[in-house]
Amino acid sequence: MTILLEAKNLSKHYRLARGETLRAVSDVSLAVHRGEALALVGESGCGKSTLGRTLIGLGAPSSGEVFFEGERISGLSDRALRRWRPRMQMVFQDSSSTFNPRRTIGDTLAEPMRIHGRTGIAERIGTLLEQVGLSSSVLSRYPHEFSGGQRQRLNIARALMLGPELLVADEPTSALDVSVQAQIVNLLRELRNSLGVACVFISHDLAVVRQMADRIAVMYLGRIVEEGDVLAVLEAPAHPYTRALLNAVPRPDRPLPPPLKGDVPSPIHPPQGCAFHTRCPLTQPRCSQERPELHRIAEGRTVACHYPLL
């Protein structure tokens, strides 16, 4: 498999008022292969959305580089990036804000192709609507006439209009009911199989991630703490935080294990050493001094912990 998108030591810092810096993403390196689905998981505020946006050039990174098919796309001007835009698209959680309430669905769907001066818009819309399971009668209707699930389908269709090779989906199912969520998850998997689109799938729902993704990257306070094959990681997590996340998912077959103590620390003042040491049940004196680097523990499996569980 060839590498489609690669990030090297990517960081994104936000300058806040009063001279503070918020390190939303720190020193992240990852690769997305052609046709692969990589899931980014972690708790609220850990930098998943920021990383997703930075990966496809929505907002310049503070440091580090991003390569698309081996060519550097970070640090390019907006003009220079335009050439790449059709090949990378994003789907957001809140599908209602993507659609202008006063424009018909057909109008909104056609827009990206019009902007990029493509032809054959009508046929393209027809095929895509079929792929996302809607009839072409929706074109003359307005966004409010659709349910959340249908809007999310349209949202996905819009992102696919230009035939992207990479799709970044930021919590595409979080606002949906379980039964609708299942439809969207199926749809995304199907599209991946039939179109070969690579996907960065951002979510905090481990069950959905397991269903959707090939690989998983777990983030904590702006850093990736564990990465590997999704089934392997969820079967036997190597990082204490991954295990805690997995334990915190309520399940019928077992009582709730004792939850993690405390809250996620502020990304403005991340703890010294291992960022997780303030909540880690396995913490040792070394953890608060020395930051564990991401290292390989098995084929295709990396973890950032001094005392991994594997």
Partner: peptide, 13 residues
């Protein structure tokens, strides 16, 4: 419709 957290992964939910 709930995706499983263990066991085999269904092709479609």
């Amino acid at each position: 419709a709930i995706p499983p957290l263990d066991g085999p992964r269904p092709e479609a939910l």
